[in-house]
Design a protein around this nucleic acid. Structure first.
Lengths: 166, 166
DNA sequence: TTTTATTTTCAGTAATTATTGAAAGTTCGG
DNA sequence: CCGAACTTTCAATAATTACTGAAAATAAAA
């Protein structure tokens, strides 16, 4: 397999993986391209390499920056913006976990929490509350593990893995 | 808030959470309905409660059964099928993790693995391989943690949490 | 075997989500 | 301030994904 072919396969793999895990295909592909680019790249280059429009490139680059996965870089004497990706995989994982937790776990957790306290003292009401408490309890545990991961450093991760894999 | 209102809020919350995490809305809502149903329910009841078609109900119930989240039940002297959900949250989490790993992590891992060994000895080729190895290494670690979780029992989970949260 | 209750399938359609591309906005040098 | 270089926005459209409902298949009862 040729290098360029391999790169394209990687964009595609990363893109598919992204869609499966709640990140849109283009965003993941731009990230993939930046991950295998040694030098900072421009919006133009992203558009050409992935065959996407300027608007699409722009909005997804911005989201990657918001998530902390990509940084803007300016070159002296140039007006164009250049972009580079964070390359450390554990840092990438933590940043993704942080964003998804914030947007997709936190609100659900809060909704379940509220449902724990409906006023209904029939046996069905009691059973419902107890079910919600049960779900809330497990979800909270997952949430705090996730928060610990998000705020951890690589050293913590290594120790955790050593303990868990053993 | 009334009980029925609370149930509906729960269907909606669980459905949204599902879509965010790669499970389709109806599948998650049927699961939610079964989670708060003490008695086994029929396809008819699911259709009425969630206002969905028979085809939609059928295909999603089947997927829930495939995932091991729902069981068929037969009542003596009746031809209709009844359904009940697994209620233990850690078991539910393990089953979901298992299915998603199988369909969405395993293939990506394998693709990355193949990209590690392209034949290209330019500096760019070497850098690409090293990037792929790096990604593969982190992804493998995540994968083995996940597999350990999937095959674990509640006791293991409790111990793990005790260690990690402390 | 025929009738009836029930489940499954799937082509057509609807709903949702992502992308384009051109126009508007911004920023900077002269 | 003006114009060029570049970035951002967003209405229209395309692509993807999910759902409906009626017909076909299945299975039990008569």
């Amino acid at each position: 397999m040729e290098l360029q072919q391999a790169r394209e396969k990687f964009y595609q793999t990363w893109g598919t993986m992204g869609t499966n895990w709640g990140i849109n295909r283009t965003m993941a592909q731009i990230h993939a391209f930046l991950l295998v680019s040694e030098e900072p790249v421009t919006t133009e280059e992203i558009m050409e390499e992935l065959l996407i429009s300027r608007g699409n490139a722009n909005i997804n680059i911005r989201t990657l920056i918001d998530w902390g996965l990509v940084q803007r870089e300016l070159k002296a004497g140039e007006r164009k913006e250049y972009f580079t990706a964070e390359k450390d995989m554990w840092t990438i994982s933590r940043r993704i976990a942080r964003e998804r937790r914030k947007k997709e776990l936190e609100p659900a957790l809060q909704a379940i929490d509220e449902l724990r306290s409906i006023k209904d003292n029939t046996p069905e009401g009691k059973k419902f509350r107890s079910r919600m408490s049960d779900i809330h309890s497990t979800a909270s545990t997952v949430d705090s593990l996730l928060q610990r991961f998000i705020n951890s450093n690589d050293n913590w991760i290594v120790k955790m893995i050593a303990y868990l894999i053993k």
